[in-house]
Design a binder for these strands. Structure first.
Lengths: 230, 230
DNA sequence: ACCTGAACACCGTTCAAGT
DNA sequence: ACCTGAACACCGTTCAAGT
């Protein structure tokens, strides 16, 4: 799980481009869970959620389709593993001592969101079954930090879930709203056409606002204001 | 495995049943956008997101598959229409004058969430293209209410999106986490097994907490505390 | 305007079998 | 232990054609 972009593909290895004949192409590394997951992420990035099929995945890996099923239960399993792998998280040692708990939380959650947005398919695939070590590690860090900050034990879970909900909602919305210019245009047209019925959101240009990062940060501040111990 | 047929077919019986003067909106005979959408919702409720196929939908409607394509662009279109229909919303007249703006907001958002949870597939299908009159009506109501409550124009969009994000994240999480007892069991087992690595969330029983409604309300209160004008 | 069947180019997964 | 092709039971959608 360490090597994220490591050379799992044999065709275009840069070091040996000039000298390389056919021979090395045959040395595909053996199929493995990690290689399957990494390739699934590549494929999802390139083709989107409907672009991942077991057949295409096997093609990219240079194996037969059914070989995948030795390493992986089924297609759902591939999705779950891909999602957790996107949220790689090594509990940084300094977060245990930093005096700026709020900064720590904001930083971790912005990183969370940024990672998911780099793989826009991931937000819509985060089910309970996908909870792997990376996601759990982030929840643990959040829990520890909030507790240290003075959030009461009785409020802790509600606070964590509210932050989770906010991040998931924001990420999912951004990923699913902003994928194509075509969608933007259609929404704008529809809104203009019906503006008489929705005067307030028309006036504030709610659906045309494009500052996603700023809006995320400001909403997060609202939430952290609300749950800070006073 | 419940092959439940709602008697919705048979080409010529609408006139022949002479004892039935009751005319409901659920008219059988002609294919129409509304009838397609309503049946799609039924099918999604019964079989889940993968259970909706154009062939099955046509079957339920007693028509050929390709007949659907006269009324509907494609399968995506069916999804979008189904999502908006779930969020039916008639702008209640009294919300314009109620003195309890916070109660109004909580009420509308709890209704929003409840409607989506009654159709758990809907949360994961809410894209920009799905924004129809019902969703826009809710955003308009939210906007008006917050504005009336004294939220500054410069904060308005951030406030609305933060509420949207929160509701969407909470609803999506609840829908996708709690669908099966099997998932719960697997999560519990995994957590117990790895509890040494995640002591804090283990101690607070974060993943076993089952009070979704309460957690939703408490998190919403955090957020509203944070964005209330002081 | 509305509906249709046949056909195309795909799917995920079971199975029995190969090394 | 690991991999495989053939086969099954499906998909969404194009097309040419019917009323």
């Amino acid at each position: 799980m360490v090597a994220k972009r490591s050379g799992a593909r044999s065709k275009g290895d840069q070091q040996s481009v000039s000298l390389q004949p056919v021979q090395q192409a045959s040395s595909e590394p053996p199929l493995s869970r990690e290689r399957i997951v990494a390739t699934a992420v590549e494929l999802l990035d390139a083709q989107g959620i409907d672009g991942l099929t077991m057949r295409r995945l096997a093609d990219r890996l240079g194996s037969g389709v059914m070989s995948l099923y030795w390493h992986v239960d089924n297609k759902e399993d591939v999705f779950d593993l891909a999602v957790d792998s996107v949220l790689e998280h090594r509990g940084s040692p300094e977060t245990g001592e930093s005096p700026d708990w709020r900064g720590d939380v904001v930083h971790m959650l912005e990183d969370w969101r940024a990672r998911m947005l780099r793989h826009p398919w991931s937000a819509s695939l985060l089910r309970r079954r996908a909870l792997g070590r990376n996601i759990l590690g982030r929840l643990e860090m959040l829990s520890k930090t909030l507790s240290r900050a003075g959030v009461a034990d009785a409020d802790l879970n509600a606070a964590i879930w509210s932050l989770w909900n906010y991040v998931m909602g924001a990420t999912l919305t951004r990923a699913s709203f902003d994928l194509s210019e075509e969608d933007r245009a259609a929404a704008q047209q529809r809104l203009t056409h019906l503006s008489e019925h929705y005067p307030t959101i028309e006036r504030s240009r709610l659906l045309l606002d494009n500052d996603w990062d700023g809006a995320f940060r400001r909403g997060l501040d609202f939430l952290l204001d609300g749950l800070s111990p006073r």
